[in-house]
Write a protein that binds this DNA or RNA. Sequence first.
DNA 1: ACTTAGATTTCGCCG
DNA 2: CGGCGAAGTCTAAGT
Lengths: 221, 221
Amino acid sequence: MRLIVARCEVRYTGRLNAVLPNALRLIMIKSDGSVMVHADTGGYKPQNWMTPPTVIEESEGRMVVRKLKGDDRLDIEISEIVSDVTHDMGEAAALEKDGVERDLQELLAEQPHWCGEGLRLVRREWPTDIGPVDLMCRDADDEWIAVEVKRVATIEAVEQLTRYLERIRQDPAMGACRGVLAAQTIKPQARTLAESRGIACVEVDLAVLRGEREPELTLFA
Amino acid sequence: MRLIVARCEVRYTGRLNAVLPNALRLIMIKSDGSVMVHADTGGYKPQNWMTPPTVIEESEGRMVVRKLKGDDRLDIEISEIVSDVTHDMGEAAALEKDGVERDLQELLAEQPHWCGEGLRLVRREWPTDIGPVDLMCRDADDEWIAVEVKRVATIEAVEQLTRYLERIRQDPAMGACRGVLAAQTIKPQARTLAESRGIACVEVDLAVLRGEREPELTLFA
DNA sequence: ACTTAGATTTCGCCG
DNA sequence: CGGCGAAGTCTAAGT
């Protein structure tokens, strides 16, 4: 990884055009060809960048980064170099995440009763022609239930599930299929829209699903 | 800006849990409190990070970054420091962009005929109770046309325009309002859904709108 | 303070 | 390789 602290002006042309006026910034060049231009503020995001695969040309006071395919182009004009160091970092193992939507879906697939009493799983990722339904279940009366799983459920999740239900119900055998929206958090507006469309809402707790915590019972029992 | 190259192990707990095994990485700390952990590959995105506002505690071989509000927490355990430098960068002027959705909307507002023959603009950002329609126009027959502008139009853009049309048509005077989806790129599924709902699709070219390029005519005229 | 919509979204999976 | 959906999305703007 190469770290250059320099006074520079940066131009990006490609999907749009963008200009960074001359100022002191960090230019980070990774060994995979990624180039990022960071200011000392602005958090997280580089002010300008190019993702691999790239071709980097360097000449006196100038660096041109091109995308291997396409017209994207980053022009860095360097007027003063404060520091320029390179570090060999070797391989860094990838990030291991836990608690994303997929984990939630897996846990609910194992314990579908959290989505509704007496539910049993028929299939995960039930295919429709507009995409897969997260969980397809049947209840004690053998009625079909389509479950959409989200970490945070917004109005869009309700629209998504509505589209699926529309398609599923076209099959006469599943004309009575109901919808359930299961999420760690359900936005109030999403809940309102869902209920107005007859879609049930279930807020689930990851720790409870894992048996690490008791489910909260009625507050004033 | 402080740049630390170090062998470290990083744990994030908050919205989810994530672990980065011990390896050589760059720890970037901006003066606004942003903390990013970058590997030498992986482009653009830090492997782990915390956006401001943060509180940073540092002790021997350990750094704890907490969000000022909330339970988010980054634990960096440092086993070896290769380099640790700080640079005063001052202020860096912001990025100036050109070619984002707003520019597209402005250009189409000036030349609404690209959205349909004989169209004239009534108003940009036409207000409805669920948000503003990008462009509201009338055609040669004085019929209303609601235009949704996107850089890249997905199925969500169609849903958005559909919601607007639903509301607009509740007004008896606008009961026949038509919808047009205008974008630089329209995804196939979005086009299919739009057309099945009677919404017209128009792909527009920024360079053509600016008169920098001739519109492509029929290929085999 | 909270919500909504855009982004050079990026990223990963699956066809 | 393209399309689609998730993301610790992030970020800016509006209410």
